[in-house]
Amino acid sequence: MLWFVGLGIGGAEALSDKIKKIISESGVVYFEQFTSPMKEHETKFLEQLTKGQFKLAPRWLVEDGKEILEAAKTKQVALLSYGDPYIATTHIELRIRAISDDIKTDTIHGSSAITSLIGECGLHFYKVGKTVTIMSGISSSTAYYTIFENLKLGNHTIVLLEWNQNKNFFLDPKDAIASLKVQEKEQARKVFSDDTYGIVASRIGQDNQKIIAGKFSSLSKTDFGEAPHTIIIPGMMHFTESDALKVLAECIEPPEDNTPKIEKISAQMMKKYIPMVRRALDQITPYYKDSKEFAGVLENADLYIKDAERFYSQGQDELAILSIGYADGLVDALRIAKGIEPEIP
């Protein structure tokens, strides 16, 4: 028998009688701490509840799973996790393996800091997009583009920060913000700036919980205290979300939406390429003023540019891109025929 037990975020004193009973009746209790840490006195409390073996489980032991599954074939085993056990995909995979080995499994779900922090900030959970993680020393380009996609839809993004159990290392929110700004310089999609609004939720569920919100320029200079921390990048906030955030958080600046501050890649392209192709057409036209056979080509290039402008104004970005692409191709052909070098974007 293998129990997956979520301890929630309320600490040892918030454990239900059922959880305490499962722990005390288990032959082996594994307490994994790689998803989030528990304080030493809380770990000690769990150990005291255990009548069988109590073992701290590092990431490799849970990912390998062989020892846990082997023990669960002959005795009741409990795998304890801070928060909810299935926030970690490793635990889902272990449960599937257990069921495949005809090992009975059961679950005690617990509140997770990842889900709880949304309500603690006063945000609407159904507006949360894809979650991302930022690690130290690793490019945050994936996080950059995921947040970009979420913002385009008006969604909020939960940004998880690295915790290295072996090194007892927590990534500081200021370093995570700095890494996103580095990506902005490299990607240049106008997603992040000093005016980007962020929320840093620290120690959710603990007595010293703290939520601080403000622009990146302010958050980059703020001490958030001890870990763990999570960043939220809000998209479009309903007025009830903004009002709640003002009450529930320390707002260095008033809440702001980030979605209106960004532009879709297609919009950025249109702003760049429509004027560029128009200039190129104006440049090449005088070379063909006496060439009637090319009048139709020039006219079509002009019409495609106008189509691109019209489609873009109507929000039909795909058609706008196709139209400006056709216009650019015609103009390039006209330039090549005259031996004129194309403009480099």
Rank of each mutant, 00 (worst) to 15 (best):
E162V: 03
M270L: 15
D195S: 15
P275M: 06
K167E: 14
D101M: 13
S266L: 04
R95P: 03
S266E: 15
G154I: 13
I22C: 10
V247L: 15
A267N: 05
F170D: 04
S179Q: 15
N166R: 11
L15R: 02
M38D: 00
E309Q: 13
V247R: 14
S100W: 00
E186K: 14
Q206Y: 10
Q209A: 01
G315Y: 11
G6I: 08
E318N: 09
G83Y: 00
T74M: 08
A188I: 03
R97Y: 01
L160Y: 03
G110R: 04
V28W: 06
I262L: 12
Q33D: 14
Y288E: 05
A71I: 04
F125T: 11
N168P: 06
S16Q: 03
E263V: 01
F54T: 05
S26H: 10
G6P: 07
A57P: 08
N150P: 00
S179R: 14
G137V: 03
V247G: 00
S291N: 14
G154K: 12
E256W: 07
A72D: 05
S218M: 10
P345W: 04
S140D: 06
T35W: 01
L303H: 09
K261L: 15
K39E: 15
E47D: 12
I233S: 12
L46A: 03
T35H: 08
Y145M: 08
P85L: 02
R278F: 05
L151W: 06
A71S: 11
G325E: 01
Y144R: 05
K75A: 13
A327N: 10
P85R: 09
A88W: 01
G11E: 09
N208Q: 02
R59Y: 11
T157W: 11
K292Q: 07
T50W: 08
S26P: 11
V297Q: 13
G110V: 06
L180M: 14
M270V: 01
G325V: 01
G83L: 03
I87C: 01
G65F: 05
I252R: 04
G11H: 13
P286H: 10
G325D: 07
I9L: 15
A57I: 05
I274E: 07
N164Y: 07
E42L: 02
Q314L: 12
F294H: 07
